[in-house]
């Protein structure tokens, strides 16, 4: 049976849901988890509930802040010492940065951002989007193990805990290594909303919003739903929204359970970035807009009139 390690990042012990999504999908395998720095008993308990047999906690004074060089070096030593065949991580900012470097240390393959996967014995088969989701491809590994996989958040979905992991904690003192790229400062976001890539609900605005001065009506709808706010490329390129808000092929690829597109016509590169949303609501004055082809619920109407009334309606029922 394949030996599997799941790397989980955390912020002060808070682990990301994608770790549990991965563990849930691996419930019929023997899986260990590793993290850098203490997770705390709540997260350890949760990981055990989702099947973690051993929980490796890597510590070192050189690892107090994230560093691709330092993290990769300590993970490499763990993977070698324990002989893991597969290493999984969420396809998060950290996972995307760290895992390619780690895979390269082993001259081994890595598949990025799978949205589904299965094992046939020890043979991994994954499904991953390409061209921002315009097409899907099956991916398999060639060459020697270990093999590395990142998984897109929100794609696998949460499963019920199995309560069969021992969750045995194993502290590891990392050997210091040279770190050349150092985080000297962290600027915390003022927003307490989840990132677009992890959001459960997204309200997005497009060219129809005309100006950033009109974001108030989008903000109000988002507040009622606890949603994160996105924007189309047209609005970003017009300088009315920052790139960090852009959804689409040259922005963020998202898969929330609810995506509300306000004044977005649905250019092919935008659709590519949000088509895997579970439910899509579109509000647009043009009944021929391509976004309506993908919308579960399409409202042909003026967003400046429809959005405020929708906000009021949702306030009543939520």
């Amino acid at each position: 049976m394949a030996k599997i390690l799941v790397f989980t990042e955390h912020s002060n012990g808070h682990i990301k849901n994608v770790t549990l999504e991965i563990l849930g999908r691996l419930s019929s395998h023997q899986v260990d988890v590793c993290a850098v720095g203490d997770l705390g008993s709540d997260s350890e308990k949760k990981l055990a509930e989702y099947g973690a047999l051993n929980i490796h906690i890597i510590k070192g004074s050189h690892l107090e802040k994230y560093s691709p060089e330092g993290y990769a070096d300590s993970l490499k030593k763990l993977v070698e010492a324990q002989g893991y065949d597969f290493v999984f991580s969420g396809s998060t900012s950290m996972g995307k940065d760290l895992m390619p470097r780690l895979s390269s240390m082993f001259c081994a393959g890595m598949v990025s951002e799978v949205v589904n996967f299965s094992f046939e014995g020890e043979h991994f088969k994954g499904i991953r989007p390409m061209f921002a989701g315009k097409c899907l491809s099956q991916v398999e590994f060639l060459g020697t193990k270990p093999h590395f996989v990142t998984v897109r958040p929100n794609a696998l979905g949460m499963s019920d805990p199995t309560n069969k992991g021992a969750g045995k904690k194993n502290d590891i003192a990392a050997v210091a290594c040279e770190i050349k790229a150092i985080i000297k400062e962290m600027v915390k976001s003022k927003s307490d909303k989840p990132d677009l890539t992890e959001a459960n609900i997204i309200v997005s605005a497009g060219r129809g919003l005309k100006s950033k001065d009109n974001f108030a009506i989008i903000n109000e709808l988002a507040d009622v739903l606890g949603a994160t706010i996105g924007a189309s490329r047209a609005l970003v390129d017009a300088g009315e929204a920052p790139h960090s808000m852009q959804v689409g092929q040259t922005g963020k690829v998202v898969s929330p359970s609810l995506y509300i597109a306000c004044g977005i016509s649905g250019a092919i590169q935008h659709l590519a970035g949000m088509r895997t949303s579970k439910i899509i609501v579109a509000i647009n004055t043009d009944p021929q807009a391509p976004i309506f082809e993908k919308a579960d619920y399409g409202i042909v109407g003026d967003l400046f009139k429809v959005v405020p009334q929708l906000t009021q309606e949702l306030k009543k029922i939520l």
């Binding site: 989007p129 097409c135 491809s137 991916v139 919308a295 399409g298 042909v300």
Partner: peptide, 23 residues
């Protein structure tokens, strides 16, 4: 080569949604 790609396909089409006129 470390990764083999196969079965490249278009994502399944969504069933047609409901459309409302609020002009």
């Amino acid at each position: 080569r470390k990764i083999k790609y196969s079965n490249v396909s278009l994502p399944p089409d969504k069933p047609k949604g409901k459309k409302f006129d609020a002009m």
